[in-house]
Amino acid sequence: MTATWVSVLAAYLHLLAVATYVGGSIAMELILGPAQRFVPPAQAQILAQKSADRFLVLVWSSLALLPASGMLLFFSLSDQSLVTSGGIFSTGAGRTLLAMMALWAVLVANGAVITFVLRPRLASRTSASGGRAAAGAQLQAMSRAATWVSRLTRVDLVVALVVVLLGASLAYGNGIL
């Protein structure tokens, strides 16, 4: 009975984490992004920064919750010999699980690059003290960072969709790999 409650709770949290990541990314890309064209550029920049700040909190919460709830779900539902007797490499379910973990690591790595490398560059203020050339170079660096944030966000969305595919194949069968 306890195992059932734990598995229901774990499944619910796991799905909320997936929904927050995938649905939030799609909403950011398809709802908020295009709407920013309708406000003045300065306001759009503030909006983009504030929304990204808030969304990153959700992203990191989801990324933390995914493995925690996933492990809880796995150990409350599955046959644990999958990991103890080498089944993780020799069975479809094991390989699918491994691929999901690898893709989760990709999401974490991309999230870290966006949060700790690219976002600080975008948030930096242009200064006139170094002259016009330095300000121009800084603006160029910010523009490059914005382009990379956009690229990585799209890559993350595709990776997250593949993770959902793999997760669904585990939930409805024995994995697809």
Binding site: L15, A19, A168, Y172
Partner: peptide, 29 residues
């Protein structure tokens, strides 16, 4: 059946995630 399950999960995730986004990101924004 796997394909239908995948699609259903994805549609649900997009829906709930969108609603959470509106509540937790857009409303405070």
């Amino acid at each position: 059946r796997d394909g239908l399950g995948y699609l259903f999960t994805l549609e649900w995730a997009v829906y709930v995630g969108g609603a959470l986004f509106m509540e937790l990101v857009w409303r405070p924004l």
